[in-house]
Write a protein that binds this DNA or RNA. Sequence first.
RNA 1: GGAUGGGUGGCCGAGCGGUCGAAGGCGCACGCCUGGAAAGUGUGUAUACGUGAAAGCGUAUCGUGGGUUCGAAUCCCACCCCAUCCGCCA
Length: 422
Amino acid sequence: MHDIRAIRADPDAFDRAMERRGLTPSAAEITGFDAETRATQTTVQALLAERNEIGKKVGQAKRAGEDTAALEARGRAVAAEIASAEAALPAQQAQVLGLLESLPNILDADVPDGPDETANVVLHTHGEPARFNHPAREHFEIGEALGLMDFATAAKISGSRFVVLKGALARLERALGQWMLDLHTGEHGYTEHVVPLLVNDATMYGTGQLPKFAEDLFATTDGRFLIPTAEVPLTNLVRDQILAPADLPIRAAALSPCFRSEAGSAGRDTRGMLRQHQFTKVEMVSVVAPDASDAEHERMTQCAERVLTELGLTWRRVFLCAGDTGFSAARTYDLEVWLPGQKAWREISSCSNTRDFQARRMKARVKIGKDNLLVHTLNGSGVAVGRALIAVLETHQDAEGGVTVPEVLRPYMGGLERIARG
RNA sequence: GGAUGGGUGGCCGAGCGGUCGAAGGCGCACGCCUGGAAAGUGUGUAUACGUGAAAGCGUAUCGUGGGUUCGAAUCCCACCCCAUCCGCCA
C-alpha cells in the first residue's frame, strides 16, 4: 500500500518508481481521483458541520421551551443535501484505494534494473560446486532408490505436487526443521511461535496476498485461507497496534507447513519435491523502527546463510533485480543452493525488507515522541525445509546411493551418520 | 450444533436520544513536595482524514453495515466476533 500524500507531493518520482517495475505511469490518474475525492469530502464535511450546528440549536431551543419546527425543517433540508453530496464518495474512495493497493512497493534505489531473473546480481558465493567420482543423481532418484520418497502414492492420495517421505527421510525433514528453529531461537534472538495456518482475509490483506493474489492461495469453505508462508500470521501479530519503542525490535520465528496453489506454474519443476503444494519452512519475521530496517535486513540474511553453511552446502547470495522482486518488497536477497544432481542454482531462501508497505496496510505503528510512525517489517526464510532436504541429499550423496548426514543434524537423527538403503 | 451473556479510548470500566470524544480508575508524561525515593498532589495524555504557512478549525470513529430522528455510544434491523454452559470431538 502506498502513501497517497507521497504521490501528491512528487507524482513524477512515483511514476519513475513504477516504471522500474515495468508498469505504466498512473500518478496522474491517482492524483486526479484523489482530488475529486477530497473535493467531495470537503463539501460533505461542511454540510455535516451545518447539520451538527442545527442539531445543537434544536436541543437548546427545546430546553428553553421554544418552538423548533423551523429549525427542524432546515435540518431536513440539509440532510437531503448531505445525502446527495455524499452519494459519490464511496465509489471515489474505492477508486483511489483500488489503485493504491494494487501497485507494488517502491524499490530501493540500488536494486538492479532488469526484467526478470536473468538480471539478478550475484553478491557472493560460499563454497565450490561439489564434484563426485560417480554420476551425480537428482534428489528424487536418490530418495526413490532408498525407498523413502514416494511420489506415486502421494499422487494417489492427493494428486500431483505432493510427496510421501518415510523412515530416515521423514526424520531428516523433521530434524532439519527442528535444528533450524533451535538455531534461530537459541542463537539469533528469534522468539519461537506456533501460529494459525488458517487465516482470515484481513490478515491476508495485511501482508499483501489479497486482494491481488487470491489465485495463489487455497481457500476454505468457510472463507479462510491456508497460509502460503508463516510470514503471514507472524507479521500480522502487530496488525492494528501502536507499539512502544521498547517493544522493538520484534523477532519472531516459526516452523510451519506452507500451502501454495502454484497456479500459473504448470509444467515447471514437475519432477521431485522442488515445487509442492505443501512444504515446510522455518520463517523469520522482524518488526523494527523505520531507521533500523537496513541493518536488520542484513542481519536476517546472515541468519539464513549460516543455516546453509552449517549444513555444508554451496550457496550464493543474489540481489534480485527490479523485475524479479516481489510485490511487497522494497529489496530482496535470495539465497540459492547449488544442486549437484540438477546442476543448477536453486532458491532456498528469500529475505525481504518491505519497509512500511505492509505496515501501512496493517496499521502497525510505533509511538516515537508525539508521532505514530509506521514500523518496518521484514521477512526471510530460514530456510525452506523441503528444499534444504533436497540440497542435503544431492550434496552429500555417495557412490553407493547413500547420504551422509550433516553433523549438526545427527543429534536430531538419533546419532545416525549415513542414510542408506535397508 | 443448542442456550445465555457481551463487544466503549494503551488497559479496566461508567454512560437518561442533545451540553458525550465520551465520567471514574489504572498506566504513561511533565511539574510540585523530598537530601534522594516512595507516598501524596497538580496538569496533561485516542486515532484517522480534510483544511491551513502555522496556531488552529472542521469531520469521522463507542464490533461491522444499514435504518429511525433536526440530532444516535444510547432506539430498531441484519451480520461478525468473543466469553460461558450443554452436546460432539483431536
